[in-house]
Design a protein around this nucleic acid. Sequence first.
DNA 1: TGACAATGACTGACCAGTCAGTCATAATTA
DNA 2: TAATTATGACTGACTGGTCAGTCATTGTCA
Lengths: 237, 237
Amino acid sequence: MTNVAAKNPRKIAVKATSRRAGAKASARSNLPPKPASNRAERAAERRGAIIEAAMDEFIARGFAATRLDDIAKRAGVAKGTIYLHFKDKESMFEELIRTAIVPLVVRLSSTPPPPGASVRDMVELFAQNFIKEVASTRRGDLVRLIVAEGPRFPAVADFYYREVVTRGLTGMRALIELGINRGEIKQKNLAQFPQIMVAPALIAVIWQSLFGRHAPLDAIAMFRVHLDLIFGERRMA
Amino acid sequence: MTNVAAKNPRKIAVKATSRRAGAKASARSNLPPKPASNRAERAAERRGAIIEAAMDEFIARGFAATRLDDIAKRAGVAKGTIYLHFKDKESMFEELIRTAIVPLVVRLSSTPPPPGASVRDMVELFAQNFIKEVASTRRGDLVRLIVAEGPRFPAVADFYYREVVTRGLTGMRALIELGINRGEIKQKNLAQFPQIMVAPALIAVIWQSLFGRHAPLDAIAMFRVHLDLIFGERRMA
DNA sequence: TGACAATGACTGACCAGTCAGTCATAATTA
DNA sequence: TAATTATGACTGACTGGTCAGTCATTGTCA
């Protein structure tokens, strides 16, 4: 019987402006001028904006304290739009972590191995990449976020353990064994605890996240000292 | 009836919130069979129960997701009672961290230094204490909680930095310098980054908290390997 | 009995998730 | 090609539930 329309008559005429608001919503970060005439493109763009905004908000406030209204506002999108892309807040969070972690792992694990490099060089290169890409960027806060919310999101913790921790440690163990075989590393037991190799890098990430503003830490210099412990002090060049 | 009277504008303008921190001198060892006829004692007991319960809840759920109703229920107290002891949720959280951290620091920093101990022995002893007291107890989750909530509670992060981090690092630096002077430690630069010395211990704490159930880590064995890197591999006994 | 401690029902703000309605664009027809 | 219709992305007011904080009332000790 459509008396529903009568129920809310005021909203009918009002619209005109809000459509244009959509156009100015490209305020999200600094994307290059993108026409995006195609529907699917626009949708993908919006999805990207939501992910970007959600990442910022979750990092800044944590899962529970983050409001979807704020994410929507930051993404330049209505709240309902979020639900076109994600089932609910929780799965949005989990999916977010996944889509942020995977390319990070890919990038870090696909660094070209220099030809005649020593194991030390390889580890140092990796650590430099890691510190540059993670410790001094928003991605570092992402690691902190995982540490913070992990226990409440077993799916996230498991994913992180599987995709990042075991992979990273396996790779590092291989590198350590190579170093032992080549005679670069004396301490045989190190292969049992690859965690030791990366510990300072992780500490640096957490440090920057918590105390960075207050007391910055030269992560790379620290890591070099750490490498000196493992590979022996380097002849100065 | 007449709950409309709640609008009543004249209210008792009292409530200089009771900071009755003075009399807390009750032996808070055994909980269940305690008449505690004395009023101050009972109050202190309740306060303790609230702190205990709040700690559990905050660790399990984080700040934002923790409900005061749950804390009250767990502490066996009505919600209003919490507000007799704490101004609000936020200051409760901050005070909580403080009251939990201080005795921990005291205990760890007041370990009796064995007479003829080497620097390595001292560090190892400290690490064993730390791992035993922190990594494998609820206190480890406390560290994780600080990492998690620190950025949203600058007061907490600052406190932790001042009372724990700088203290710990200063002490560790002194120990390292002693080790260098005694010839136990070769790597002179280590004194610049005492963080390296404790990094594996912290990693162990975080590991247990996140992955412990899934993949336990022998933190003490790991730390020994780490010490071998710094002090040289030990002659086997 | 008076003073204070404790209670828990209540309030109001807040927020995740919904859905009726809108409209730009794509698809279809003439 | 232009006109017409169909689609579904998008919106934002709204709902129902939750929860921090309050305070009138009740209980308890000295």
